[in-house]
Design a protein around this nucleic acid. Structure first.
Length: 185
DNA sequence: GCAGAGATCAGCT
DNA sequence: GCTGATCTCTGCC
C-alpha cells in the first residue's frame, strides 16, 4: 500500500481531516506490524479556532503543530493519556493538526489486546487515549515522519462509504464548528 | 447499564 | 491552583 505523500498534508486542515477517513495507520514495533483503518478524526486549526492547542501560540508541547506537515504531534493529557495528531495545514496558515480519534483494527489485533490488557476488541482503538495504548504511541513518536516508511506512517486505504460530521468531542468553546468526521464501520 | 470519582501533567486568566 | 482534544473502576446514591 502506498504511503500518503507530504503534499497530502499541505492542504486545509479540515479537508485533510475529512480525507484521512478510510486511510490506514501503520505501526511497526520490533518487526511486527499493527494497523488500523482511520474511522474518526477532528480538525484543530490556529487563530480561528479557540479550541485548538495552537490558539494561544507556540509552546514547548505544541511546537510540532507549527512545524513541517505530515509529522506526528503527540501530547500527554489528563495526566495519563497520550493523544495522536498529524500536522496538516495549508501554506497560508502557521499551525494546524488532525486528531486521530478512532481506528478499526486490521492487523496485529492480538498484540493490541496484549498492549491494552483487555479482551474486548471493541475496547481497543475506540478513542484517542485507547488507540495510542494499543499502538504503543508515546512521546518518543513525537515528530515522527508519517509521510515515509518508518515505525509509524499512514497509507492509502479504502474510500469511505458515508461520512458523518458533528461537533468535536470534549471541548467547551467553538462547538459550532462541525470539524469532527467519522465513517460507519 | 449508567453516573460519578479518580488518576495526576502542562499550560494558563 | 485549576482545567482539560480521556479512560477505567466503582457502586447502585
Amino acid at each position: 500500500m502506498k504511503v500518503l505523500p507530504r503534499s497530502f498534508y499541505s492542504r486545509d486542515t479540515v479537508k485533510v481531516a475529512k480525507d484521512l477517513l478510510g486511510k490506514t495507520l501503520v505501526r511497526k514495533i520490533n518487526g511486527y506490524t499493527l494497523a488500523g483503518i482511520i474511522t474518526e478524526t477532528e480538525a484543530y486549526r490556529y487563530k480561528d479556532d479557540p479550541a485548538s492547542h495552537a490558539y494561544r501560540g507556540i509552546t514547548e508541547r505544541n511546537k510540532a503543530m507549527f512545524g513541517e506537515v505530515g509529522k506526528a504531534y503527540v501530547y500527554f493529557t489528563y495526566g495519563m493519556y497520550y493523544c495522536f495528531n498529524v500536522v496538516a495545514k495549508s501554506q497560508r496558515v502557521d499551525a494546524g493538526a488532525v486528531l486521530i480519534r478512532a481506528l478499526e483494527p486490521q492487523k496485529g489485533i492480538t498484540k493490541m489486546i496484549r498492549n491494552r490488557n483487555t479482551a474486548l476488541v471493541s475496547n481497543l482503538t475506540g478513542g484517542p487515549g485507547k488507540l495510542t495504548q494499543s499502538l504503543k504511541i508515546t512521546k518518543s513518536q513525537y515528530g515522527e515522519d508519517l509521510a515515509k516508511h518508518s515505525t509509524l506512517y499512514i497509507t492509502e486505504g479504502v474510500p469511505p462509504n458515508k461520512v458523518v460530521l458533528g461537533p468535536r468531542i470534549g471541548i467547551r468553546t467553538a462547538t459550532d464548528k462541525l470539524w469532527n468526521f467519522k465513517i460507519k464501520v
